[in-house]
């Protein structure tokens, strides 16, 4: 092995090691400084279960919405030749690079009760979206769906289009082809995209705290709870909650290992 590689140049080894330390050390710190002795008390404190449940439910709902809307969108981007497709792709991936807090403000301006659509909703139905659990789901979907779209589009591009052509030759229309051939073909990609989307939704903070506010039980998700505990001067509780999120993240990574750790030819965005 070493002979074939000809050794690792020091100029690469040193920064690579530093990079590893930089990425891993904070996580080690979290484990070292965790209040292990009273972790049980911290995690059974009132509100923790509530925040965790809210996080899991809203992230799952956000992923469901993202699947319903995002997979067809990815198909549109990968399989059609509609005009302005590249512009469309750029537009729908903006939330991927947009600071989430900006997304939260943008959501206010559209879906807030003074917003472009929100005002109509409020005047007609008396429905106000911000500061509700639905607002959490909306904020998370906004931030996380692009991850799914990008992931599924990549899978679609990597998939062999000849199966779909064969289906078309045999008389299947595009909808049938999509359902019976395309979707099963890219199912692993869709699953990976969904997991990625779910993880991003679970960790969402900026858009959520901006658009959905913070109230225990309705909008206070785990990341918000971590931040609020820290602001309230309870670092031990913040660390304990962080551990839970770290655990969930590691589980997510395990789910994705086939895709990220097992293969090296993952289609990139």
């Amino acid at each position: 092995m070493r002979r074939r590689d000809g050794g690792i140049p020091v100029a690469l080894l040193v920064p690579a090691s530093l990079g590893t330390v930089f990425l891993v050390l904070p996580l080690v710190g979290l484990l070292v400084r965790a209040p292990w002795s009273d972790l049980g008390t911290q995690l059974t404190a009132p509100g923790v279960g509530q925040a965790l449940r809210l996080s899991l439910v809203s992230a799952t709902l956000a992923t469901a919405v993202a699947l319903v809307l995002g997979v067809p969108l990815a198909w549109l981007l990968a399989r059609t030749r509609i005009r302005g497709r590249s512009v469309l792709r750029a537009l729908v991936t903006v939330p991927l690079v947009l600071p989430p807090v900006v997304g939260g403000i943008a959501l206010f301006l559209v879906l807030g009760r003074q917003g472009i659509i929100g005002r109509w909703l409020f005047d007609t139905f008396g429905f106000s979206l911000p500061f509700t659990t639905a607002a959490v789901v909306v904020a998370e979907t906004f931030v996380a769906m692009p991850f799914l779209v990008v992931s599924v589009e990549g899978a679609l591009r990597a998939a062999d289009a000849r199966y779909e052509e064969a289906a078309a030759t045999l008389g299947a229309d595009r909808w049938t082809t999509f359902r019976r051939v395309t979707l099963p073909l890219v199912a692993p990609g869709v699953a990976a995209g969904a997991v990625l989307c779910w993880a991003r939704a679970l960790g969402e903070f900026g858009a959520t705290i901006t658009f959905a506010g913070q109230y225990p039980g309705t909008t206070e998700t785990m990341p918000l709870a971590v931040y609020l505990e820290l602001a309230a001067g309870h670092p031990e509780a913040a660390v304990a909650l962080s551990l839970v999120l770290l655990l969930v993240s590691l589980a997510t990574l395990l789910l994705l290992r086939e895709r990220w750790l097992g293969r090296s030819d993952v289609p990139a965005a």
Binding site: F108, S128, F131, A212, G213, Q214, Y215, P216, T219
Partner: peptide
């Protein structure tokens, strides 16, 4: 409906009409 982290954040929600 929301517990804000500082008073200006609470005020902003009024200014936004939210």
């Amino acid at each position: 409906d929301t517990l804000e982290q500082d008073v200006k954040a609470a005020l902003t929600k009024v200014q936004l009409g939210e």
